[in-house]
């Protein structure tokens, strides 16, 4: 394989407890820690391992977002990606537009494999990978937990509700990474220094001439309905009694 493209999305860090703004206009993202979407980190780790096994020559990380996403791309370069592309957009794109933008980069780079995270932990949409595969007219292997390459195809083990599915797809293809695909490496300080010298291309989204998208409007935000704190029992007998009271035993 010549090239693997990996998508990296800048998201609110996994450990941040997200709150809805008082006026319901959105969620509070001011001043919170931002990171690479965890599933995208797994996607990148897999691409790097494929390259390190000698099965690919180049790993390119791609982000679609504001100029700040350069931070996440630099982290990706420090992990070991060879170069980075930032599709720069002041306002966040909808999933279909993200897939269309990604497709334009795919057309420029002609990768044999694109690996994305199975979902981003901010909007939890889980759409972009499947949409990219559809628009590209290529196979998709979502929720991947294992990849085995042979010739021009890859056998993918997928995490599904009933257990595991195994499918075989011809390259080029889109894979979306699930949790157990691998454990991403930690970035070392010298690699962060080295990453500063690696190429990072910025492409204004306007340059891609994306068609207008039927975006879904977000009209109001609210906190989830809260569950009331219930009762505490002292011991197993108390628990069994409480369950019986509720008619559950």
């Amino acid at each position: 394989m010549e090239k693997i493209l990996v998508g990296l999305k800048r998201v609110v860090d996994y450990n941040v407890r997200v709150r809805v703004k008082g006026d319901g206009s959105g969620v509070e993202t001011e001043g919170v820690k931002m990171s690479i979407n965890p599933f995208d980190e797994i996607a990148l780790e897999e691409a790097l391992r494929i390259k390190e096994r000698g099965e690919a020559s180049e790993v390119i990380v791609v982000s679609i977002g504001s100029g700040d996403a350069q931070q996440q791309l630099r982290t990706g370069l420090a992990m070991g990606a060879d170069r980075a592309i930032l599709v720069e957009t002041a306002t966040a794109l909808d999933p279909l537009s993200n897939a269309r933008a990604f497709l334009e980069i795919v057309k420029r780079e002609n990768p044999e494999l694109v690996i994305l995270g199975k979902q981003a932990i901010d909007n939890d949409n889980a759409q972009t990978g499947q949409m990219l595969a559809a628009l590209w007219g290529r196979p998709q292997a979502t929720f991947a937990s294992k990849l085995e390459f042979s010739g021009d195809s890859v056998r993918v083990t997928r995490e599904v509700d009933a257990g595991l599915d195994v499918i075989e797809v011809d390259l080029p293809a889109v894979v979306t990474a699930d949790l157990r695909l691998n454990e991403p490496r930690y970035v070392k300080l010298p690699d962060i220094m080295k990453a500063k010298k690696k190429p990072l291309d910025q492409v204004p989204v306007a340059e891609l001439s994306l068609p207008e998208s039927p975006a879904i409007a977000e009209t109001a935000f609210e906190p989830p309905a809260a569950r009331e704190r219930g009762i505490m029992v002292d011991d197993v007998a108390g628990l069994v009694g409480a369950l019986k009271d509720k008619g559950l035993l």
Binding site: P95, L96, D124, Q130, L132, R158
Partner: peptide, 23 residues
């Protein structure tokens, strides 16, 4: 919104040229 639907429906949406309302 199971692994079955999450896999297929966005592909359907893209082929129809629309976004998906997830979950």
């Amino acid at each position: 919104s199971t692994t079955f639907g999450k896999d297929i429906m966005p592909r359907v949406a893209a082929l129809l040229g629309v976004n998906q309302v997830s979950d």
